[in-house]
Structures are given as C-alpha cells and as structure tokens.
Simulated scan of single mutants.
Amino acid sequence: MDKPKPLSKQASKPKKFGVLAEYDSAAAIFKACEKVRDAGYKRWDSYTPFPVHNLDKAMGLKPSVLPFIVFACGMTGAACGLLLQWWSSTIAYPLIVAGKPLFSFQANVPVTFELGILFSAFGAVFGMLGLNKLPQLHHPLFNVARFTRVTDDRFFIAIEASDPKYDLDKTRKLLEATDAVAVEEVDD
C-alpha cells in the first residue's frame, strides 16, 4: 500500500486574505483612510457601523457608474414601451377609431413613463447587486472575532493581499502608524 504524500510547505500554509486594522472612532478611520490612499493601495476597503461623511473621498473612490446604468435601463424601458404601443396600434391591430390617427404619442405617455420607471428600478437594484458583488455568502473577515463589532461600535480597514503594493511588514507598519487599536493578519 502506498504511503500518502506529505503536503508541500506551500499547501500546508493557509492562504492569506490580508491585514485588518481596528479603530475606535470615525475621525480615526477617516485619517487612516487618507494615509492608506496616499500610500497607493488599490485593493482595500473600510467598514463602519454607520455612514461616515466624506469617507469615500478620503478613500479616493471614483464616482459610481450606477447612475448611468439606471439611466440606460430607464431609456430602454421607455423605448420598449413606446415601441410596443406603436407596433400594436399600427402593425398588429390597425384600427381607426373616430377618425383618429393609428398612433399618437400623447396617448402613450403614461405607459412609456411607467415602463421607464420600472426598468430604472430594475437597473438600480440589479446594478447595485452586481457592482457590490452581492450576494456574497462568505467573506474571510467573517472569521475574525473582532470584526463582529463592525455593526456595533468599531471601525475597520482591510487591505487585501492581492494588492500590488502589499507587503505584510510594510502594510502592518503603515496601519500601526495610523493609531489603530489592533492590527492582525487574516486567513482566506
């Protein structure tokens, strides 16, 4: 009977997600986000129990493309609604009633408007879910005991190991220099 092969050193090490830093106030995480942004990290995020005003600017986030998705979906819905009404009244069932034209856009405004709103709502919901990569049933940060306080009274910054600038020692020193309450490495 063959002996089982020993695991290689690479396989025995758990894969690392990155580094997690904990802060005790909104002002502290705001300053820390500015330092992480200025250090040039790209794959990182902040987690707060409530919205922190201008934190997106401190992180250097670009404006969302969601408004363009919503607008495109709304215009698609309005165009589809108008096209369907035009086709049904001029091609499929061309009935002349009381000498009126086969198609008059004024009579079709309510349906066109409502389909524009409906498609915009779908674009907003599904666009947001797609851009946020949701639903995400598991995240490595869920395994960190400290991270459970993020919905209560703590603030966190997580820098991913997949970031091009990531170096464990340099990243840890950067986060410790931001007056973090605690800094720890997170397994994937």
Rank of each mutant, 00 (worst) to 15 (best):
D179F: 02
I29G: 00
K5G: 05
S120L: 06
E34Q: 15
I96Q: 14
F122S: 02
D56S: 05
L84K: 11
V125R: 06
P67Y: 15
K31W: 00
N108D: 04
D169A: 13
S89E: 02
Y23A: 00
S46R: 00
Y166Q: 02
K9I: 08
L7A: 11
F147Y: 04
S64A: 07
S8G: 13
S88Q: 11
F113H: 05
L141A: 11
V144L: 10
I91S: 11
I91Y: 14
N108M: 07
K35Y: 03
A39P: 01
A145L: 09
P67V: 14
I117H: 07
D163R: 07
N132S: 08
L131G: 12
M75F: 04
R37W: 10
K42I: 10
D152R: 12
K62R: 15
K13R: 14
L20P: 00
A32N: 05
L134M: 10
K16R: 14
F103Y: 11
V19A: 09
T90N: 09
S12V: 07
K62N: 13
A72N: 05
L137W: 13
V109Q: 05
S25I: 00
D179H: 08
P135D: 08
N108T: 06
R43W: 02
F17R: 01
A58I: 01
K3Y: 09
Y47M: 12
L115I: 13
T112Y: 04
A27E: 14
A177E: 09
P49V: 02
A79D: 07
I91G: 15
F103T: 06
E176Y: 09
R43D: 04
I29V: 12
W86F: 15
N108P: 03
G40V: 11
